[in-house]
């Protein structure tokens, strides 16, 4: 057993997992399989009202997509969730030149934005956001009196993001709903179903945004849904999943078609039921192949090992 654990620890380098966006921010000596197949678990308190639920869902999708940001961060695939996995701290986070030690980041660096550059390499430990809503002051380097203000400044100044107006308050609502009393007892498994569910939630929230006449937010959420499907697609490697990859690609294109019609509320809304049906059919197809996907620890380990051994 000891030997087996030791061997497991050797697998696999972060470099081997580079094509998987979810592995990019892992420290080099991290247990990549663990990082890619589990997460701390989301401590999301059930919403008290319909309005809160709507905002939290927008915020949740925004929290998980690089499209929230601009510039280097977005292009590198960084999202809020990269640093705050499920809203927690992230001792595995590492970017050389930005982190210093794992779990920290210099948030006043021009790597991501010139606005906050302070000329000093001063990484700070990434904090948990669970129970952040109960605080009275937000942010260590640039304190703000409200979550909305803090998040707005981080998105704009730190990561060059310019999301639709509804998004910042929605992220604040999401973060405020992260409550230690709602934490799961065990870490969550990062499964195919869970990843697809994230994308579907973004689609449903986009549909609600269309219904309320907020086409800009709906369009942003559709883009977030496409990005979420892209991260699933990255986990479909090899000949045996060619059909499933094509299914996901077609689904993403269909979302793009609805998004292209976002300016026409009736047309966009008319397209949503068909889109959701297509989504559900794709998910059924993917489920049948789930054991071959890189959401499965065994398949992931094999794939990583093969990449480690592949000649350069």
């Amino acid at each position: 057993m000891i030997i087996r654990l030791a061997a497991a620890a050797l697998c696999c380098s972060q470099a081997a997992a580079e094509p998987l966006e979810d592995a990019r921010w892992a420290r080099p000596d991290a247990d990549i399989v663990r990082i890619l197949t589990t997460s701390p678990g989301e401590c999301l308190r059930p919403p008290a009202t319909k309005e809160e639920a709507r905002r939290v869902e927008i915020g949740r999708a925004a929290f998980r997509t690089p499209f929230l940001f601009g510039g280097t961060a977005a292009r590198a695939g960084l999202s809020c969730n990269s640093c705050h996995r499920d809203g927690h701290d992230n001792p595995d986070f590492f970017l050389e030149g930005l982190s210093g030690a794992p779990g920290a980041a210099d948030v006043t660096s021009s790597v991501f934005s010139k606005v906050r550059e302070d000329g000093v390499f001063n990484p700070v430990t990434i904090p948990t956001l669970v129970d952040a809503g109960k605080k009275s002051s937000f942010g260590a380097t640039s304190p703000h009196g409200s979550l909305d203000e803090f998040i707005a400044s981080a998105v704009d100044e730190e990561f060059a993001g310019a999301p639709p107006p509804s998004v910042i308050p929605a992220i604040a609502a999401y973060v405020a709903a992260l409550d230690s009393a709602a934490c799961p007892k065990e870490p969550a498994k990062t499964t195919l179903d869970a990843a697809m569910k994230d994308a579907r939630r973004a689609l449903l929230t986009a549909q609600a945004a269309f219904e309320s006449g907020d086409a800009e937010t709906a369009s942003f959420l559709l883009l977030a849904a496409r990005g979420a499907l892209g991260r699933v697609h990255q986990r479909l490697q090899g000949d045996r999943l060619e059909k499933e990859r094509a299914t996901l690609t077609a689904l993403s294109a269909a979302i793009g078609d609805v998004r292209a019609a976002a300016g026409d509320k009736q047309a966009a809304l008319a397209g949503m039921p068909t889109l959701l049906d297509q989504f559900d059919a794709a998910q059924r197809s993917l489920r049948r192949a789930r054991k071959k996907t890189l959401f499965e620890p065994k398949a992931l380990r094999r794939w990583l090992e093969a990449r480690e051994e592949a000649p350069h």
Partner: peptide
């Protein structure tokens, strides 16, 4: 040099890994 890690399957692999994430 940039490695061209690639599995043996047909997956489109990064022909050149990201400089952004490369060891420094």
């Amino acid at each position: 040099a940039p490695s061209d890690d690639q599995s043996s399957d047909d997956q489109p692999a990064d022909d050149q890994l990201s400089l952004f994430f490369a060891p420094r």
